[in-house]
């Protein structure tokens, strides 16, 4: 129930940002449209195990760490890319990042996190193996790249998108 309310709230917020208005009529329209989208989405989604309110709240508590941690990754990644743009990249290459996310939503979140960070480019995804192929600017030690990315996944994302 909390999840549904949050989705409706988020979509209503997005609608109000787009129409740039907080008039009661616009808020009502936003709530109705958001409720419709959420209802259609629930009907299309496959039946999954219901999650408790406590689990949802625990996941929500991890959102600040997810957003803040991703921002830190973006800033450090940008610094590395800036260095490489002004000089030459040390040893660019492709690296498989195995294990990690297990659900499609988690894969998508991981892909967006890796993609928004300028020092990693997602090249391919192998859902069966649970692995993502990324291109990094310094791949001379692939194990270090894997360890860093897995540590980032565990620390920042696993709580919200297990």
């Amino acid at each position: 129930m909390i999840g549904i309310l949050l989705r409706v709230l988020a979509l209503t917020g997005l609608y109000l940002l787009i129409v740039s208005s907080t008039k009661p009529g616009d808020i009502a329209t936003g709530v109705v449209l958001a409720a419709l989208v959420v209802a259609v989405g629930r009907r299309r989604r496959e039946a999954s195990a219901p999650t408790s309110a406590r689990a949802t709240l625990r996941r929500l508590a991890g959102v600040p760490a997810l957003i803040g941690g991703t921002l830190v990754d973006v800033v450090t990644g940008s610094a590395q890319v800036i260095r490489c743009c002004l000089r030459r990249p040390p040893d660019p290459g492709l690296v498989w990042l195995p294990t990690g996310p297990t659900s499609p939503a988690s894969f998508a979140a991981w892909g967006i996190r890796l993609g928004i960070t300028p020092n990693t480019v997602v090249v391919d995804v192998d859902e069966e193996r649970g692995a993502v192929l990324v291109h990094v600017l310094d791949a001379h030690d692939p194990e270090t790249v894997r360890d860093e990315q897995m540590a980032s996944y565990r620390r920042r994302q696993q709580r919200v998108f297990p």
């Binding site: 973006v74 800033v75 940008s78 890319v81 800036i82 490489c84 743009c85 002004l86 030459r88 990249p89 660019p92 492709l94 993609g115 928004i116 300028p118 020092n119 480019v121 090249v123 291109h135 600017l137």
Partner: peptide
């Protein structure tokens, strides 16, 4: 501006994408 320099200087498609994502992201 730095991303533009990177796109021109970096070798290979993948490396150029790093520079490009600096512009389109941050």
């Amino acid at each position: 501006t730095i991303a533009l320099v990177g796109v021109l200087r970096m070798p290979g498609t993948y490396s150029k994408l790093h520079a490009q994502s600096l512009a389109t992201g941050p």
